[in-house]
Design a protein around this nucleic acid. Structure first.
Lengths: 157, 157
DNA sequence: AATATTAATGAAAACCATTTTCAATAAACT
DNA sequence: AGTTTATTGAAAATGGTTTTCATTAATATT
């Protein structure tokens, strides 16, 4: 249930208006779902969640909206190698929920970690600046993932 | 043309034998293609390349072999967001060809960079050690990608 | 070297996440 | 309220990847 309460329009409205994009019920519902979770949701996960409240919203709209949200930088799309994309609200490196992933290549488990983020941020800051300059590339986000065998899988092999 | 010349069996044989995996013509051909390029090849790219020399080898075998190679850690699978996976021979952070990617979210261009790798290695070493200990995770590889707009795309928007 | 064992292969079909099509709907502007 | 045009939903299409199954060939055994 998207709760707008009484503190004016949600923070994301500005990202739509002025670019020709419209604020619609499905879009608000999807952002709301993403905003409430810290999990890595697939398009279908989001569909099922949205469906509970708005049964008429179709999976196609979920995909289209996610594509838009990724495009305007509100959402980040991940690939953990299981054939379906995952989505999270994107927060820059300074965001409170910013984290990276540890992916088990055997069972597919994904662990979020926030440790060492400070060191990483410092390095990433330098790297981004350097790359940005060298390649005239405007960097908007980054992805760091470690792969290996998780606690449960490392001994079984 | 897989060239084995005269210096004994290729370095990867040891990764197959002893684990019950067999050394076959398709597998050698695929590794050979990957070994000769520095591009990011899709399964189909590899198929077409292999097909020039071994026209009877099918796409199915390419997929199966790549899956195996990824599983035993010889190959790394990337996702650049265009709906098809890319493969590269995996080299650890110290490998001569080790690099990271800059991905343009507008046109899909991928730039390899090796700059700042030294700094990264130092940080990654620490991070890996810490994460490995904290989560009892055996880290075998990592992925670092920056996203943004490339030289050609940044102004057009 | 011949045979037995079983992993690997190829062709076709199946799979399934994602995208496209197109007519109907509903934001935002006048 | 009326107009414009972005957005939506349902169904069909797409296309990379996986599965099936009978055949072939790499390795082990004799």
């Amino acid at each position: 249930m998207p709760k707008r309460s009484n503190m004016g329009p949600p923070w994301w409205h500005g990202r739509f208006q002025g670019r020709g994009y419209r604020i619609t019920v499905p879009r608000e519902a999807i952002l709301d779902v993403l905003n409430r979770t810290s999990k890595h949701l697939s398009a279908e996960d989001i569909y099922l969640e949205v469906h509970k409240i708005y049964p008429h919203i179709g999976l196609t709209t979920i995909y289209r909206t996610l594509e838009l949200l990724v495009h305007i930088g509100l959402v980040f799309k991940f690939d953990f190698g299981d054939g379906r994309a995952r989505f999270e609200l994107s927060e820059g490196p300074k965001g409170i929920r910013h984290h990276h992933h540890l992916v088990c290549t055997n069972c597919g488990r994904v662990i979020d970690y926030t440790d060492f983020i400070d060191d990483e941020i410092e390095l990433l800051g330098r790297t981004e600046k350097g790359l940005s300059k060298k390649f005239n590339f405007k960097i908007t986000n980054h992805l760091i993932q470690f792969y290996g065998l998780c606690d449960g899988c490392r001994d079984k092999k």
